[in-house]
Write a protein that binds this DNA or RNA. Structure first.
Length: 566
RNA sequence: GGCCCCAUCGUUUAAUGGUUAGGACACGGCCCUUUCAAGGCCGCGAUGCGGGUUCGAUUCCCGCUGGGGUCACCA
């Protein structure tokens, strides 16, 4: 039994696609479960791109999601294509000699030939076949079988490429671990180019050579590669190598469709209400932290989107694991360790699975809600600093406020200061934020949602007011406002140590009893007066969080509020 | 168009030659409740069509329809 080795082979496109992550995840899970290795290889045969800028987001994204590779690029070494592992280098652009060796062998054994057809000549044949509704098969009219042929074609000013000399009869059966046996006629396969006129190599050749050199045991990739597999198998067999096992996964499709999910169709997806909701929620957070949302990366098809808005890897990974795979009729909540233990290829589905933004969000929520308070705290800091409510006083991010320069996970011991409430000393900030996060509880579903509750971090004489709520609950409700004044007096007489949620609730109930009124007659006004908002955390949690002094200040500051009625 | 793949609630999925076809998300309702969340309960809702095989088919076979992938000197 050979060692299990799987690989994910992204090309440096500048972003990590959510569908790519699903594929990488399945490769990773399969390898890890069987004590194998997961390899990352960079398909950068197209050298026109800036590798560092185009690759870094992909490496960072995978690492962030916890899909770590055992061999492959050094994460900090993308600029100079540095990699680690027994088969370095793991960049295709650095492996040209291996590919040349393979092409030479193929040529020598007659499995490939030099071809001097011009592009338009091939195109004409292709068109003719299409018109006749036949499979296009190249006539090999410009195939150079001898040195004399070569010389003659070259004298005509033709440039030569190397093509595969594919079989023209017989069948090929691919034993796919997901789809079972898939049969192809060799006669319908073309003589694909494997080396260009300029000497560079085509993907299929490089791919096959690398898989062989790296000892890949299982090629697990998306279904769109199934049609390409015969030509790859032809190369492998011609070279006398052993075939890997194949598993073609269903691809990730558009919301509500079976078409492959694409980064470029954002406008179309925005017509899907769930998708739009996800984007708008993200945008509202991005706007408050000063993050540009016009950039290419701000798109739920791209992993960076989630990281910026404050999703956590656990939720994304869990959701993605269910796209094309299910354990049974019940279990759905998995962490990475569970998946490694439970994943099997035979439970992978064959049909494409469409991306469901609402369900992704539901999984994010499930995983986020159970994070310990301190973990939420560490994640909230970045958003609060970038939105201008907080600043770091020490550590590497002291004074930094640019969102993109801040880490998503802060050192919990960083000393912080409120920027809109100078009276609260830095030593009390962590306690306040921790209490806030606890009071807020399940109302924050992504880290960036903390920005919905910053009213508790504002100055007590100058905090944000929702004017509509104010008009409805205070200006437009004079009876409530009068009760509020009276209740403010009671609170002033209430001892400091009674500013806990349960004690305040009892205190409030006693007041209601005395006045013979219902909670609604006072509590809404109280909420708006103290928090500036009509909705929010539990009323008594809010008062306890502010404490007596701040609560009274806020109640007293009521006079400054706009009194125009709606 | 050739070749290949696919087909269960809106979405994601489970299941078996015999089940009231199960779960999750979404949606609707109710409960809880000071608002907003969260939570609990209930509901809505699917085997694409036509033929076979079979006592019986969602399941097996064939055809149809529909959807998708792929046919580059992209990866």
């Amino acid at each position: 039994m050979t060692a299990i080795r799987t690989r994910f082979a992204p090309s440096p496109t500048g972003y990590l696609h959510i569908g790519g992550v699903r594929t990488a995840l399945f490769c990773y899970l399969f390898a890890k479960q069987r004590g194998g290795r997961f390899i990352l290889r960079i398909d950068d045969t197209d050298q026109t791109r800036n590798v560092r800028d185009a690759l870094q987001p992909i490496l960072d994204g995978l690492k962030w999601l916890g899909i770590e590779w055992d061999e492959g690029p050094v994460i900090t070494g993308a600029a100079d294509r540095e990699s680690f592992g027994p088969h370095v280098p793991y960049y295709q652009s650095l492996r040209g000699d291996k590919y040349q060796e393979a092409v030479d062998k193929l040529l020598a054994s007659g499995h490939a030939y030099r071809d001097y057809a011009r592009a338009e000549e091939i195109q004409a044949e292709r068109q003719a076949a299409q018109d006749a509704k036949r499979t296009f098969v190249y006539s090999r009219r410009f195939m150079a079988e001898t040195e004399a042929d070569r010389a003659r074609f070259e004298a005509e000013g033709r440039a030569g490429v190397v093509r595969l000399k594919m079989p023209r009869e017989g069948k090929l059966v691919i034993h796919d671990l997901v789809r079972g046996d898939v049969e192809f006629d060799w006669a319908t396969e073309q003589d694909h180019v494997i080396q260009r006129a300029d000497g560079s190599f085509i993907y299929h050749l490089a791919n096959v050579v690398d898989d062989h050199d790296f000892g890949i045991s299982h090629v697990i990739r998306a279904e769109e590669h199934l049609s390409n597999t015969p030509r790859q198998i032809f190369i492998i067999q011609s070279l006398g190598w052993e075939l890997p096992a194949y598993a073609h996964l269903p691809f990730v499709a558009e919301p509500g469709s079976k078409t492959k999910l694409s980064k470029r169709k954002l406008d179309k997806y925005l017509k899907n209400p769930d998708f739009a909701k996800l984007v708008n929620h993200g945008k509202s957070i991005a706007d408050r932290v000063g993050l540009a949302t016009t950039a290419d990366g701000f798109n739920p098809v791209i992993v960076d989107f989630y990281r910026q808005v404050g999703y956590i890897p656990e939720g994304i990974i869990n959701y993605l694991s269910l796209l094309g795979w299910a354990l049974d009729d019940k279990a759905e909540f998995f962490r990475m360790a569970d998946m490694v233990r439970l994943f099997t290829l035979d439970k992978v589905n064959k049909a494409p699975a469409s991306f469901d933004p609402a369900k992704l969000f539901a999984f994010q929520e499930k995983h986020f809600i159970i994070l310990p308070t301190e973990e939420k705290y560490r994640r909230a800091i970045r958003y609060l600093i970038a939105a201008g409510h907080l600043q770091a006083l020490d550590g590497p991010f002291a004074g930094v406020s640019d969102f993109t320069a801040l880490p998503d996970l802060f050192d919990p011991d960083t000393s912080l200061a409120l920027t809109r409430h100078e009276e609260i000393p830095p030593r009390e900030v962590k306690a306040l934020l921790t209490a806030l996060i606890e009071a807020v509880g399940e109302r924050i579903k992504v880290s960036g949602d903390i920005l919905d509750f910053v009213e508790f971090l504002d100055s007590d004489t100058d905090f944000a007011i929702d004017e509509k709520a104010w008009a409805k609950r205070i200006t437009g409700a004079p009876e409530s406002a009068a009760l509020l004044d009276e209740y403010a007096g009671r609170l002033a007489a209430c001892p400091e140590e009674n500013f806990t949620a349960p004690a305040l609730e009892a205190h409030f109930a006693a007041f209601l009893e005395e006045k013979q009124i219902k909670p609604a007659q006072l509590i809404h006004a109280l909420r708006v007066a103290v928090t500036g908002k009509g909705v929010g955390i539990g009323m008594f949690e809010a008062l306890a969080l502010l404490g007596k002094e701040r609560t009274l200040k806020r109640l007293a500051a009521r006079d400054r509020k706009p009194d125009e009625s709606a």
